[in-house]
Design a protein around this nucleic acid. Sequence first.
DNA 1: TCTGGGGTCCTAGGACCC
DNA 2: TCTGGGGTCCTAGGACCC
Length: 398
Amino acid sequence: MTADDTGCTILHVDMDAFYASVAIRDRPELQGQPVIVGGGNRGVVLSATYAARQSGVRSAMPMTRARRLCPRALVIAPDFEQFSTVSSAIMETFRSVTPLVEPLSMDEAFLEVKGSLRRFDSSTRIGEHLRARIADEQRITCSVGVAATTQVAKLASRRAKPDGLVVVPHDEVTAFLHPLAVEELWGVGEKTAAQLHRLGLRTVGDIAHTQVSIMQRALGPVVGARVHAMAWGSDQHTIIARRGADEPEHSIGADETFSRDVDDAAIVLRELLRLSTKVAARMRKACVKGRTVTIRVRFYDFTTFTRSRTLRDATDLTPEIYATAAGLFSALGLQRARIRMVGVRVENLCDSATATRQLLLGERQHGWEDAERAVDRAVHRFGGAAVRPATLLKTSRP
DNA sequence: TCTGGGGTCCTAGGACCC
DNA sequence: TCTGGGGTCCTAGGACCC
């Protein structure tokens, strides 16, 4: 790639093996060693150092398989609070260059740098500046992709890994994209790739030279059109400045895989209560209420059901969320089914301040609200274990 | 000893209203 | 008598991302 980045004002910045890099940055003896962040007897790999990747370890791989592939790897449990702190600092570094920062996850973001070119001279310079600062301030490496569109910038940063920078100038976009395998495209996963392979399409160039209508018939009107557009390097995505914490979510949920499959409804209900408590507390912290409660139940063979119910009024209260979740679960009428995972999610969120609530006849206005807020205060002062529903105290989870 | 936990977005069918 | 669309909301499922 040439250094001419004229017109390329979008950067995709992606930390290299983020969780693993943060986990070992204060432990010089582990530099260059195979390290896996993950855990739990039924967990997956969250992140692995490049030394571990050399043995074939990949993100999202079952830990059992990862340990088999790389028995000498050190396994470290994730510390999400630490990751979150580092992530916030990194996003602030990005914002010191441009206000147009769109975080995609803890460890990556799109930056629109058009407005910063006068100060920095070129997009490439900005990328190198950020790489140097993050290496200096956080002692981890990152990779940067520079292009005219988000999709191409994202693919460029992947090409740059680890610890590099790749520019894809406008007139080299098709030469860059077309040799790539279809599954390299953002939004093309296992199923879509298989569908494309059935059509005989192996490379991004194959997609580009197939009629949009054929793509849409195979993948649906929206996804088909998007994938075809991406094959020509054109995407409609414009960067939306967001600041993680005050961005309203569309849903808040929690799920839990049991360490062993469970066939006792009482244990499942107790877990639904624990998850409802967790979700309700997170909703109150985010100052949102929601109307639709969804449960997910995954069985031993990975088949998964979802059931949802929409309430008349938005809520952020454990008793209401739990009652709905428990009702949905009971309505499934399961008889000693072997359950692997359950989850509770609340959707249709709105700002707590604007949520209106019609009082039922005779309902006390502040009953549960007051109780829950007292719980929040106690948890804040004494920690999460301080206050929880009585049924969660009897036995520990399986 | 297979396969986490947090999300977003899309599709499709049915109910219901005008 | 027969037969309409369009719009919105709800529910269930599935694909995908990190």
